[in-house]
Design a protein around this nucleic acid. Structure first.
Lengths: 227, 227
DNA sequence: CGGCCACTTGATCCGACTCAACCTGCGTGG
DNA sequence: CCACGCAGGTTGAGTCGGATCAAGTGGCCG
């Protein structure tokens, strides 16, 4: 609902920014906002935790992970941002997560100052921005339950249902991310993620065609676990 | 900054709502908003997950926990709300967490419709509301790292630093909540919380005077662990 | 066709959970 | 005013789920 696909009249070129008109999703009411299209290679950093929050972003294609890192390398991915999702709208002057491209991605970039100006004059835009933040919060609340209280199988079930829901509940999932990313999202190790996949498959709950393509076979079982 | 103590000219009576004037904190710019003061006994529910979100709340005294429950009783507390904190400002028609008083508490209650009206006309109020939601999100992001990646000791260290910070970094903490609440906040069992307290005490990092009163003795050590 | 990155699978380990006993402080009533 | 009851907390013993360490496998790209 909030996350519709955007359309621009620009042709994004990898690493070569071009300006495009921004016309839907956030700021329907603020057609004057224009976004720059940028390309990022797989694993390329978009912004770092603690950096100046100069821009706000929207995924045009590909996928982005936002995460926190501990000094010793432990990582927690807070959210995956897929096509149509906004990210980087942290409050304050600085980003408090790091953002990286999961696969080669195209991202629309908006000057933060411009966004602030629009929001300071346009109540609908302000409300939209608030709703997006609130949606992120709601996701985070669900994810805290997952991280604090769910078993490995339950976490993977919830993850697969989440990914499927983003793809229109087709039961056919093409995962853009590696096992390591899934593990860092679910608070597990990649071995445990892999084992849990194998378990679900041997139980006929899912079917794996390669590591990335997943077909949901018994949605009811997944829902019973993932909820 | 955002969370200053409120003052009302009402005398709150347990279970007996009275109207009071609301004059600071949220909606500095919206003096027309008035809040009702309500008393809640320890463990009393303020609102339930899925219930109609008719009100927005602010803790006047005491402490409130907001949490998610699984069918089998597993619980994840998302946040503790102490004096001055707002809670219950979920988007959408329904609350997506349950709120309960941790100890006997007084809470200011605002009609959601009233808040919506103010926000729809007042940009400063809208911004304030957005900032509060964003602050909750930031807290949730930190907490996801804790729940997904930290050890029991690290979780407790982070918790103590958080509680101390809310009390002005005095190093003297009076915990309003029980071990079970701390456990459900940190994604642990109460036994593990208790053991971790004992460990930190035997290392001279903290000093316990009863279960609720904690003195921080080696803040640097806590910070090294909790970060 | 070769090499390597991602993934799977196996064996062992360990931190936190479970189950259980015991302690302690506080409120209450005799 | 003391003793009892009990809720909350601590501590101990044993278990277990997921982490760690270690091989192996597979598929894709050059």
């Amino acid at each position: 609902m909030l996350m519709q696909t955007i359309r621009t009249n620009s042709t994004p070129v990898l690493g070569r920014p071009q300006f495009g008109t921004f016309e839907s999703g956030l700021f329907v009411s603020a057609a004057e906002l224009s976004g720059m299209s940028l390309g990022y290679d797989r694993d390329e950093e978009i912004y770092g935790e603690g950096e100046d929050a100069e821009f706000v972003y929207k995924v045009a294609s590909g996928a982005v992970r936002t995460y926190k890192l501990m000094r010793d390398g432990r990582r927690q991915i807070g959210e995956f941002h897929l096509s149509g999702d906004f990210f980087g709208l942290d409050i304050g002057r600085r980003h408090h997560l790091t953002a990286e491209a999961v696969v080669d991605s195209k991202v629309l970039v908006f000057k933060r100052r411009q966004v602030e100006t629009v929001v300071a004059h346009n109540l609908d835009a302000a409300r939209e921005l608030w709703l997006m933040t609130a949606n992120h919060l709601q996701h985070a609340e669900d994810h805290m339950l997952l991280l604090g209280r769910k078993t490995a199988r339950e976490r993977l079930a919830a993850f697969l249902l989440e990914m499927d829901a983003r793809n229109g509940d087709t039961g056919l999932i093409e995962l853009p991310m590696l096992r390591r990313d899934i593990a860092d999202y679910l608070g597990l190790t990649l071995e445990t993620v892999s084992r849990s996949f194998s378990e679900l498959q041997s139980e006929g709950v899912v079917e794996l065609d390669g590591a990335r393509h997943v077909t949901l076979r018994k949605r009811a079982m997944l829902e019973a676990m993932g909820a």
